[in-house]
Design a protein around this nucleic acid. Structure first.
Lengths: 145, 145
DNA sequence: GTAACTGCAAAACTTTTGCATAGCA
DNA sequence: TGCTATGCAAAAGTTTTGCAGTTAC
């Protein structure tokens, strides 16, 4: 039991899994823990490397399985920017992403209610959106880049 | 010379290529023509099949090359929805995409100035966006689905 | 003529699948 | 104990690369 998921997070994970009739496994906990602990939008492969510090024998296929499970449970969101690997993000609040083309870093940008409404106002009659993804690319001037 | 690019479109293509010091080839013209003629957001593979009606020997690698060229020239935009193949789109006006999870169809949604401004208002100081992508997924009720 | 582009094949990369084994409930 | 999840390997799918031959300028 080397995974260091906080009690509250572990409970949340367990509840969410149980709600779907799924089991708690150390692999799922460890993948979730990795995503929570460093919110830098890692790819499945990034996550594999990090999880292996705790679980050296975990396979990439299992990481993909765990990620799919976490996404299905609504604990994690997947992000597709340009044509590179899918990235994963524990931020469940409405937000956009900004990818800096110089550093490659990805930033979360919070979205206020007003912007959310404005954004959904472009949906024509009959279009019912369950999900949206907004991403910017560009550069970040100076700052902590 | 079996490609049926309209005179104006051909001129636009030629000018854009010339501006970058690139050559006009029938492959590039044909790929461009295919994207312009049916705005259903085809993948590279879709485009290959359509272009081969005119140029039976064109290869997938060439299609990818042509697409990259057209995107670099600003004549075509690439669209990444979920984790499937990249799609291509000749609509250069600011717009969003909506993918119907039932039919799989992708719709362009126009964006007015106000929404564009609202959308960019979430960028923090120092963040300079060169590009954005907004996509919705959901269902389309009745209508011409 | 020559540098750029194409076509082909192979490689690289990401993600999925099938199946035997392990482990949670 | 039974059934789900994991680990491994192989497959599938998308995109890129290297190179010889072709073509636009």
């Amino acid at each position: 039991m080397s995974y260091t998921l906080k009690t509250q997070d572990r409970r949340e994970l367990h509840t969410a899994l149980q709600k779907k009739g799924l089991r708690s496994t150390k692999q799922r906990a460890s993948v979730y823990e990795v995503i929570l602990s460093k919110k830098d939008h890692p790819t499945a492969d990034d996550i594999l490397i990090r999880v292996r510090k705790n679980l050296p024998t975990i396979s990439l296929a299992t990481v993909y399985n765990c990620l799919e499970t976490l996404v299905d449970c609504g604990l994690v969101r997947q992000v597709n920017l340009d044509r590179s690997s899918t990235r994963f993000c524990p931020n469940l609040t409405p937000h956009a992403h900004f990818k800096c083309s110089e550093s490659g870093k990805i930033f979360d940008l919070n979205m206020d209610e007003e912007t959310m409404e404005s954004l959904h106002s472009i949906l024509p009659k009959g279009f019912q959106s369950q999900n949206f993804e907004l991403s910017f690319s560009g550069t970040v001037k100076h700052l902590s880049n």
